[in-house]
């Protein structure tokens, strides 16, 4: 579904992504793991069109590298940004409405109901300002907001960031559940153990290059990965 080849990102003189290539097949969860500054978020930003890139990004057969960011979203790629980034001064319902910005008005109601089915807590808090939600609720709102655009591909940037361990596993359960319903997911995580557990395939990013790729179940037992990312000695 998504085919990235030889993708480069430069921030001024800094060469952040050095020609990475990977695939996201339909219906799968693909994870990029790596430490701080490895280029995980840059990869998602590049796909979303938020930074300038060199290389090719093919989505559903069409080239999207170099498209404007708001047009990428129209093509069916939704991004849940790092640190949630909900619209703090809008209500929960308005946040969802923004998620469905380019959606046909008549199907908005259907979209709300789908989101409320998965996240009942959001229904309770529909009229509340998003900034007053707890961290876990905000992450759920960010997920729900992304789903409002009826994406074909959902990109998640560190959904576990700053959440309590119990909430983290809840969020990962929801991601798995979304995937089971047919959503294709590209996940970027520092919490490698949790991410690999729910993923089909994984890539390891180091200093802007992919150094390792394999089935998630293989990566989880890979010695190098265990040492570097799973905190085992």
């Amino acid at each position: 579904m998504l085919k990235v080849s030889n993708l480069n990102v430069y921030y001024g003189v800094i060469h952040a992504l050095k020609g990475i290539s990977f695939n996201v097949p339909e219906g799968k969860i693909i994870t990029l793991i790596g430490s701080n500054g490895a280029g995980k978020s840059s990869t998602l930003k590049a796909i979303a069109g938020l930074v300038n890139t060199k290389g090719s990004i093919k989505f559903l057969g069409g080239e999207i590298a170099g498209s404007k960011a708001h047009l990428v979203s129209k093509k069916g790629i939704a991004k849940v940004p790092e640190g949630r980034k909900v619209f703090a001064n809008l209500t929960v319902l308005e946040n969802l409405r923004m998620g469905g910005f380019n959606r046909d008005r008549n199907t908005l109601e259907k979209g709300y109901n789908e989101v409320f089915n998965i996240f009942p807590v959001l229904k309770e808090r529909a009229k509340q300002l998003a900034g007053t939600l707890s961290g876990g609720e905000q992450q759920m709102l960010a997920l729900g907001r992304a789903m409002m655009s009826e994406p074909a591909l959902l990109m998640l940037d560190e959904p576990s960031l700053g959440l309590a361990p119990k909430i983290v596993s809840e969020v990962f359960d929801i991601i798995k559940e979304l995937n089971r319903k047919g959503m294709t997911i590209l996940l970027v995580e520092q919490n490698a153990a949790q991410a690999l557990k729910i993923s089909d395939y994984g890539y390891v990013l180091e200093n802007g290059k992919i150094t390792l790729e394999d089935k998630a179940s293989n990566l989880i037992v890979n010695e190098q990965v265990r040492k570097s990312y799973l905190g085992e000695m």
Binding site: H70, K85, N102
Partner: peptide
């Protein structure tokens, strides 16, 4: 209006708003 909501979304977080498909 819908435009006003988009304006407030841009105020709260411009990158997130763009990622929602808003032409900021």
């Amino acid at each position: 209006s819908g435009y006003g909501r988009a304006m407030k979304a841009i105020r709260d977080d411009e990158d997130a708003a763009i990622a929602m498909g808003i032409n900021s």
